[in-house]
Each structure stands twice: as structure tokens, then as C-alpha cells.
Write a protein that binds this DNA or RNA. Structure first.
Lengths: 232, 232
DNA sequence: TGACCGGAAATGGTCTGAGGACTTACGCTT
DNA sequence: AAGCGTAAGTCCTCAGACCATTTCCGGTCA
């Protein structure tokens, strides 16, 4: 087995076996090199790999540690790769977001958090009174993020956050020909979601969220250039 | 900015800017070092980070390339980290799987693939006639995987595969006191899903899949030790 | 006694140089 | 034209040295 792969497998084994639990500290690098039988360069490349995946954290001058190993923080590392996915793949991801966020929105409506509706209402007031693309994106993320958090599953929140962050790069809301129509449709979608949450109607909330995100998918799909036929 | 972070940002920028598209080849390491202004060690650590995330691939003797950048292959890299998540977090992930797989199962039922039902039926025949834990796990994965594939969204399939792979480590099906009862319940759940697909009933398929996975969640939850109170 | 501070030790971060291993492509031979 | 061997290109691994940051401990001062 290659040196870096050997180190990678060894480090993962130390965690998987329970020898090192969440937030535990690894031995110093020279000691790990000896234990794993690889050079320091190879060990460090293996550590970097696991750090990129959110499994390990290196702190300069302090040591190398196992991360908290909670799904939400691991999933959030995904944004580094998801942000590079081309539009074609983003459409597949948006279907995931639609399904998950619809579920989370229904859960939020069922939970009856007394402060949620007021908080969402304030966000929408500000969202409807701005035309700045960056602020729209920020407030939209705040609205959907607050709902997902209220849904009670941090993993779902993390996943939808990552996907929303990728979609946001396409800037549907740049001022242009259809800006007013798109903004109006989007605002109405948000109000429908809020209304369902206010009336504690999970089914309506799920439908409204699903429809709202499906609308986003349609707008993004319109940006996709037609696939080029293979010319001989 | 730290050297490795500088290299990481530079590499991502080369992809994000469109300078290098999917499957494109990077310049040789020495050239990249010069371009990014870092040493080879730092460059290689940055490359390893992105390779761990499925964004780039290094081929010994050939070169370093941008990956295909499709969501499914990027998500599958997640298994390296998800497999290390403790049980507590797996329960959150299983809720994600339940929602996504329920959606995919409904889509599979609606699609009316003529060969799907026969393929699934054959898998279930073999699954119901074995008591080997490894084979049960393999056939269960084949059953659910075939359904998700038929759902038409490879991203959903990849996500559910990763989560199912993690849950499988807990080996609910080890022969033991409740083995027969658990196996019987599981087999019935599978038959209910297949029945809904055979009758082209998306709503029933979604419900059956959701119930089946929720049952798995209950079994796993039973394995969870009670949280220890903090002692002074 | 307590807080503050300085330095030493521990630890990860970076750079350089060398040689090895694998892939690819080219030119030669048959 | 096909097969083969060699050479060039490229990534992989190792070793050693030095730098940057954190942490801890002992001394100092109020």
C-alpha cells in the first residue's frame, strides 16, 4: 500500500476503533510517523486529507485533534467541493434541497415555536423592501435557514445550507428584464410559507416550500444552455 | 495567508474561474509551485485536500486533473468521513435518508420501469432465504440502491448510499435474541415497498419506504446508550 | 498571596534537495 | 503495420533543517 494511503488508513483506524474519540488529541507528528511507519511528509498529507473532510483538526503549536464528529460540521465542509459543481449538477442538488427543506418546513410548522413566526415576518419585511442582490441573498438564506433550524435536525439544516450557498452563486436576482416579476413571485412564495407556519399547517408548509424551491429550479434551468450535440 | 491555504485558494480559483473545466489537466507540480508562490510540500498538501473532497485527482506518473465534478462522485467521497460519525449523529443522518429515499421510491413507482419490479422481486427472494448478516446487508443495499437509481436522481442515490453504508456498520442483523422478529419485520417492509412499485402507486411507495426506514431508526435508537449525566 | 510576565519547551508549518516509481510517448525493430 | 524497448515526463516518498505558534512553568512584582 502507498505510504500516504497507509497513513490515512491508520489514522482512520485509530478513530474508528474507538482508540480516539471526538475531540481527542493525537500523538505528536514524529511519534505518529514512527507508529504508522511513514515519513513526516506522507503523514502530513494524510492529515490534510482528513482535515479537509472535517474529521481532524490541526492547531498550530498545540497539536492535532479528532473533530467533534457531528454530522452538521462535517457536511458543512462539503461547501468547498459543492461550490465548484457546474450548473448541470446543481439542478440535481436542488431536488435534494427541495425534498429536505419541504420536510423541515413541515416539521417547523408542526413544532409551534412561538417566536419563529415573528422572526420570519421581520425578515420578510426587510426582504421585500430591498432590491440589492447581495442583501436579497443574505435575507433569503436567513429565512430558509431559520425555518430549517426550527425543523429540529441540524444535519438537514447543514445540507440545505450547503446547497443553497451553491445555488446563490448564480444570482438570479441580478437586476434585469425579469427582475421585478421574479422578485414578486419569490416574495409571494415566502409569504405562503410563513402563512402555513403561522397557521400550524404542516402539509401546507411542505407544499409551499416545495413549490417555492421548484420555482427556483425552473429559473436556474432557464439559465442552462442547451447541450451541444456531438459533431463529427 | 498561510502557504497551504494560499495554494488551496489558488487551485480552487483556477477551477471556479473556468480556467480549468472538468477533467482538465493541471500544470506539473514545479510549475504550479512557481505560479502559486509556495513550496512543493505546501502545494501537495493543498492538492491532497482537494483530492479528499473529490474535486481533483492525482495520477502517479501522469499528472493532476480536475475531477468530473458531478455531484454523485463528490458525495460518495463523503463516506470516508460519515463512516466515522458516532451513533448519535447517525440518527440525524437516517432522517435524511428516510426523507430522500421515500421521495426516490415514489419517483421509481411513478416511472413504471418494466424491468424494475422483476429485478427487485428476485433480490427479495434471495434476501428472504438467507440468514447471513453480510449477505443480508449486501442484498438490502442492492434492493434500496436499485430503487433509488430508478428514481432518476443520481445525487439522491449517492447520498442514500453513503448513509446506508454508515448505518450498516451497526449490524442490526447479527443473529441474536430478536433476530427472527427483526428479520421478519424487515422482509415485510421490503415486500410492501415492492408491492407499491408493482401497482404504480407513488403515494403508497413513499409511505412504505418511509415506514421501513423509520423502523430501522427505531432499532438503531434502541442500541444507543442513555446519555451520561455530567457528574461534578 | 495573587497577578503578571518572560522564557523555554512542545508542536505544527514551511522550505529545500534528492532519489524512486509509474505512465506515456516516441522511435526502432521485426 | 505491429510489437517492443527506451527515454522523457510526472507524481510519490523520504530526510533534514529551520520557522511560527501555542502552552506551560517559574520568577517577579504589587
Amino acid at each position: 500500500m502507498a505510504a500516504t494511503d497507509k497513513a490515512l488508513a491508520g489514522l482512520r483506524q485509530m478513530i474508528a476503533s474507538g482508540q480516539l474519540g471526538p475531540r481527542a488529541k493525537f500523538p505528536p507528528e514524529p511519534e505518529l510517523c514512527d507508529y504508522l511507519g511513514v515519513s513526516r511528509s506522507s503523514l502530513r498529507e494524510a492529515v490534510r486529507s482528513l482535515a479537509a473532510l472535517g474529521v481532524i483538526e490541526s492547531r498550530h503549536g498545540s497539536g492535532t485533534y479528532v473533530s467533534a464528529l457531528d454530522p452538521a460540521s462535517i457536511i458543512s465542509r462539503f461547501s468547498l467541493s459543492v461550490e465548484l459543481i457546474p450548473l448541470e449538477g446543481v439542478l440535481e442538488l436542488l431536488e435534494v434541497r427541495r425534498v429536505l427543506e419541504s420536510h423541515a418546513t413541515a416539521a417547523a410548522a408542526a413544532r409551534q415555536d412561538p417566536d419563529l413566526a415573528a422572526k420570519l415576518s421581520e425578515i420578510l419585511d426587510r426582504l421585500e423592501s430591498t432590491t440589492d442582490a447581495t442583501e436579497i441573498q443574505f435575507l433569503d438564506a436567513a429565512f430558509h435557514g431559520a425555518i430549517c433550524s426550527a425543523g429540529g435536525n441540524p444535519t438537514v439544516t447543514a445540507l440545505t445550507d450547503v446547497i443553497r450557498g451553491r445555488g446563490g452563486h448564480y444570482r438570479i436576482f441580478e437586476p434585469g428584464a425579469d427582475f421585478n416579476a421574479i422578485k414578486l413571485t419569490s416574495d409571494r412564495g415566502h409569504r405562503a410559507i410563513l402563512s402555513a407556519i403561522e397557521t400550524r399547517d404542516p402539509a401546507a408548509a411542505a407544499t409551499a416550500a416545495s413549490a417555492h424551491i421548484a420555482q427556483t429550479e425552473l429559473w436556474l434551468r432557464a439559465l442552462r444552455p442547451e447541450p451541444q450535440p456531438d459533431l463529427p
